[in-house]
Computed example of a mutant assay.
Amino acid sequence: MQITKQHLEFLEEAKIAFLVNVRWDTYFNDHSGLIALRFGPDRDCIRIYELGDEVGFFAQMIDQKSKTPDATAYER
C-alpha cells in the first residue's frame, strides 16, 4: 500500500486529537474511512488502518445496569 496525502493529513489530525485527549486510544472521523490507534510502550506511536465494509450494527447489546460479566468466561 502506498501512503497518500490523505493518509498524512489524517495522521496529523489524529496526532492533534491524541495530544488534546490524552486518554483516547482510538480516533476516527466520519469522512476519511480511516481509523488511528495509539499504541507503544510510551503511547507515542500511531497506527492507521483503512476501514472496510461494515460487518453489522448491533444495537442495545450492552446493558448499562447489569453487573460486569466474569472476565474468566472470555479467557482462552
Rank of each mutant, 00 (worst) to 15 (best):
F10Y: 04
Y74Q: 10
I3D: 03
Y74P: 02
Q2C: 06
Y49D: 06
R76V: 15
R43P: 00
T4R: 06
R38M: 04
Y74E: 14
D63W: 02
N21I: 08
L8G: 00
K67W: 04
Y27G: 00
I35M: 12
V22Q: 14
S66D: 07
K65R: 10
G40L: 10
M1A: 14
F58V: 03
L37W: 09
G52C: 02
I35D: 05
S32I: 04
V20C: 01
D25A: 09
D44A: 13
F18R: 02
A59Q: 14
D53I: 04
Q64M: 10
F18M: 02
R76E: 14
Y27A: 00
I3T: 12
D25M: 12
D25E: 12
I46S: 04
A14I: 03
V20K: 12
G33C: 07
A36N: 06
A71L: 14
D42Y: 07
R47D: 01
T72A: 15
L51N: 01
T68N: 06
I46V: 14
Y27L: 00
A14Y: 06
N29R: 12
K5N: 11
V55E: 13
V22W: 00
E54A: 10
Y74N: 12
I3V: 15
L37Q: 06
H7K: 07
I16R: 11
D44L: 08
L11R: 11
V20N: 07
A71C: 13
C45G: 08
G33I: 01
P69D: 08
I46T: 10
Y74V: 11
Q6V: 07
H7Y: 07
I3W: 05
I62A: 11
E13I: 01
I3M: 12
S66M: 08
N29Y: 09
G33T: 01
R76L: 13
C45Q: 14
A17S: 13
D63Q: 04
M1S: 11
E13M: 08
K65N: 13
